[in-house]
Amino acid sequence: MEEKLGEEIVEISAMVNGTSVVLRTPANRTMLSILREDLHLTGVKEGCGIGECGACTVIMDGKVVNACMVLAPKMDGATITTIEGLGDEENLHPLQKAFIEHGAVQCGFCTPGMILSAKALLDEKPHPTRLEIREGISGNLCRCTGYQQIVDAIESVAEGGMEEGR
């Protein structure tokens, strides 16, 4: 075994929102801080830092995860989608449209994570029941909406079938 065990600084190369990024960083950081501070993807929010609120939800290799629970070096080789990669003003994802139509947003702080959880849910299960939708977003706390308009929005997309989002 070589003298030095492990590195304090690591190199990460990842696909983030369709762009490949390479960066060097101290290992003792979270994916959340890399996305927000280094990549300026501030649509990823921090609400607790301990996996409880879901505001930091992103899609990593096709699955929703809490970005605050992922040590930065784990991003190496991963494909990551944040809300910024889902759709923009000109090209809204059907879920983003549905959230607007159903007024499923109040303060909006939970919204990016909520939409990504909804996307991952519908990718896996295109026609969920309302209860399954509730289960699917149970890792995303919202203090404002009481969830009902969010469930309505997701259900409307499920019923309409997800059009080709990106």
Partner: peptide
């Protein structure tokens, strides 16, 4: 039931909360 003011920025992640100001 008009569309909420500012909602587009919120669903696209562009809305700037205090922690997002650089």
């Amino acid at each position: 039931r008009v569309e909420r003011v500012g909602i587009l920025d919120k669903v696209t992640g562009k809305a700037k909360y205090g922690a997002d100001l650089e």
